[in-house]
């Protein structure tokens, strides 16, 4: 009996990601959810600009490549083209979602656009070679913050879930990570919920996945996963930041 194999919603093309990059894990979790919910055939995914720019090659569902940061606006168009049938997700990194595309993110959330957003936060621009991201930690050394991120000079990293939670609009916001088997299971559960919410017509559901970048963090894949625990999670605590339906249940 097969207990684990590559999900159907991923094709056989090898990922272009660096060794130990957690993008592959997150791709797989999304694909597993598409399989389990039986929605691959009606799903349209939207890839960002950044390391996961070529995500369109890996998923078996229909895919669209977006301009940098614009995925939520494109997702809005795709969803509203056929709200009953289209299942739409965006897959975006921190530079894409929280810097150049912040307006699109905030307004899609404010409209409670009925889409699923997978937000991969690894606190760095990977594709362009390791520059400071909107989520780079205070003091973090990057190519464009070579002396460490100086918050007095270039400000503080943005906590996206906490910020969006201030809005009336969004249905569901959760931060997870994928640095251990246990955390991967929890991440899968959150991603599944974010898609199920869309199927149930509940609205904007974003899962922030705290992720690693061994190459640009300059460490082994193992050390990068530990760095998530030691440095990322204290600034970006895991948890559910908004779950409107659950909150309604509680108040009943």
């Amino acid at each position: 009996m097969v207990v684990f194999d590559k999900p159907h919603a991923l094709n056989d093309m090898p990922f272009h990601y660096c060794p130990g990059c957690t993008h592959g894990i997150i791709h797989r979790l999304v694909a597993e959810v598409l399989d389990e919910l039986g929605i691959e055939g009606r799903t349209i995914g939207i890839a960002p600009v950044g390391c996961s720019v070529m995500a369109y090659d890996y998923f078996n569902c229909d895919m669209i490549e977006a301009a940098h940061g614009r995925a939520p606006a494109i997702a809005t168009g795709v969803k509203r083209s056929d709200p009953e049938n289209h299942v739409v997700f965006t897959y975006q990194g921190d530079g894409d979602l929280a810097s150049i595309g912040m307006a699109e993110t905030v307004h899609a959330a404010a409209r409670n656009e009925n889409i699923t957003v997978i937000f991969v936060n690894n606190a760095i621009y990977g594709m362009t070679g390791g520059q400071m991201a909107p989520t780079s930690l205070p003091g973090q050394v990057t190519q464009t913050s070579p002396y460490g991120r100086d918050v007095n000079h270039c400000g503080y990293p943005i906590r996206v879930c906490e910020m969006l939670a201030q809005l009336e609009g969004p249905e569901y916001l959760e931060r997870v990570t994928v640095n251990s088997v246990k955390n991967i299971r929890a991440a899968k559960k959150a991603i599944k919920k974010a898609f199920q919410n869309q199927l149930d017509g509940k609205g904007f559901s974003l899962v922030e996945v705290v992720s690693s970048c061994p190459t640009n963090w300059g460490m082994t894949p193992q050390a990068a996963l530990k760095w998530i625990d030691d440095n990322m999670l204290p600034y970006y605590p895991l948890g559910v930041y908004k779950d409107r339906s659950a909150a309604k249940e509680e108040t009943k």
């Binding site: 009996m1 097969v2 684990f4 194999d5 990059c21």
Partner: peptide, 19 residues
Amino acid sequence: VGCASCAMMCPDCIIKVER
């Protein structure tokens, strides 16, 4: 024992587990 922890952790989805 086929717990599939390795497969779940693999970023490149290369491990198939059967029991």
